[in-house]
Simulated scan of single mutants.
Amino acid sequence: MKKIITGILVILFLTTTQAQQEIVSEPVTVEIGSLHKIQSSILNEERNLLIHLPNDYKNSEKKYPVIYVLDGDNHFQHTSNASTLLAENERMPESIIVAIPNNQGTRNRDLARERDKFKQYIKDEVIPFVEKNYRTTNHKTIFGHSMAGAFVLNYLATESSLFDNYIAASPVIQILDSELHGKFNELFKTEKALNKSLYFTLADEAAEGERATNALKKFVEILKNEAPKSLDWKYNFIENQVHMTTPYLTMYEGLSKVFADYQSPRYSSYEDFKNRGGLNALKTYYSHRADKYQTSKEIPNRTLRRVAYVLLDDGQTDMAINLFEENIKKYPQSAIAHKALGDAYEENNEIKKALKAHQTAVNLSKEQNSPDTNYFSRQLIRVQTKLKN
């Protein structure tokens, strides 16, 4: 069974008369995702899943990583918002969000008393359902807060192969700290090539409590002293927050951290670019990224332009022009790519070539009904004026 999950925004319309100003509100529905009901034979009950798809899911054939979110009724919307914003800015890949809500009265049972059964439910029923019904890669992330954060850590300690990334906000581990610490000690003795990412947080002791703070400090010491180098982990102390507000910052920062190897490299100067291997190293980076995330091996349009502008600003004009021209070959229908090439030609005082590139940018933007057409047109007029003078 599938239902559409929506959020309601209230838009205020102001109507002004000479005598008064009337405020009229009108609700606007925004689709967040869909609700699916599945019958669990492991838990012997019906459970819900909330699923958010990337914006281009229906118009593409791509496969996507999946982020599984515990306490899903609390964290579905902000996770969807965070992942969308981060993906739009190349901080993480577009991803499918699968939120796992709690049934009434089952949270303590699932996350503590019968957590092994709940782990089996996720492994043997939730993940197969998602992978059967959606285009997914093999890359999976799990997030939990408080008791669910401790559940996430327990998952890493006992079944580290299931997920690639583990994110825990204010994990409450003092109840099972000795057991959990022992499991990690054993894991680190037997697994020297984890190749996983872990990000976890805590607020100050006044907000979290002495026992939770001490238990997490002990866990951090275990990681410092015993974790293999292949485990990419980070603990972040969050100031000026309380236990119930840490999930929002943790989700945003955590996704940024665990997907750091997806993010486009940035360079401060030509020297920086050269010292880090130049174009060959950049191509290798995207080849490795493609293997891990099943994305294109091509260097993205935005990245090539950004690098070329760094070279242009640093006086490497010929090299920048070559890179802009290579970008045009890869992305011939990109108006912004042609505009960028025009900028480089202009910098090199090749005004006629600049004019042609800007004209192409304008033509493409008009054909594509781009909202940036006026911007490209202004750039063209500016270069035309420069040529006349």
Rank of each mutant, 00 (worst) to 15 (best):
F273I: 06
F273K: 05
F273N: 08
K274D: 10
K274I: 07
K274T: 14
K274F: 13
N275Q: 15
N275T: 12
R276H: 15
R276I: 10
R276M: 13
R276Q: 15
G277E: 04
G277H: 05
G277Q: 04
L279F: 13
L279M: 10
N280L: 01
A281M: 02
A281G: 05
A281T: 03
A281L: 02
A281W: 03
A281V: 03
L282T: 06
L282V: 07
L282P: 12
K283V: 07
K283N: 13
K283I: 08
T284F: 10
T284Y: 09
T284D: 11
T284V: 13
T284G: 14
Y285L: 06
Y285P: 11
Y286N: 11
Y286C: 09
H288P: 05
H288Q: 13
H288N: 15
R289N: 03
R289D: 01
R289A: 00
R289S: 03
A290M: 04
A290V: 05
D291H: 11
K292L: 01
K292T: 05
K292S: 04
K292I: 02
Y293Q: 01
Y293V: 00
Y293L: 00
Y293A: 01
Y293E: 01
Y293C: 01
Y293K: 01
Q294E: 06
Q294N: 09
T295Y: 00
T295R: 01
T295A: 01
S296E: 12
S296I: 10
K297V: 11
K297E: 11
K297A: 08
K297S: 12
K297H: 14
K297Q: 12
E298M: 13
E298W: 08
E298S: 14
I299T: 11
I299V: 15
P300R: 08
P300Q: 08
N301K: 13
N301F: 09
N301Q: 15
R302M: 10
R302N: 12
R302G: 10
T303P: 10
T303I: 07
L304K: 14
L304W: 08
L304T: 12
L304A: 11
R305Y: 01
R306M: 03
V307Y: 07
V307K: 04
V307F: 07
V307I: 06
V307G: 07
A308H: 08
A308E: 05
A308P: 13
A308V: 05
A308S: 14
Y309C: 03
Y309K: 06
V310L: 11
L311H: 03
L312W: 09
L312I: 06
L312A: 13
D313E: 15
D313K: 12
D314H: 12
D314V: 11
D314A: 14
G315L: 03
G315V: 02
Q316Y: 01
T317E: 13
D318I: 00
M319L: 03
M319N: 05
M319G: 03
M319Y: 04
M319C: 03
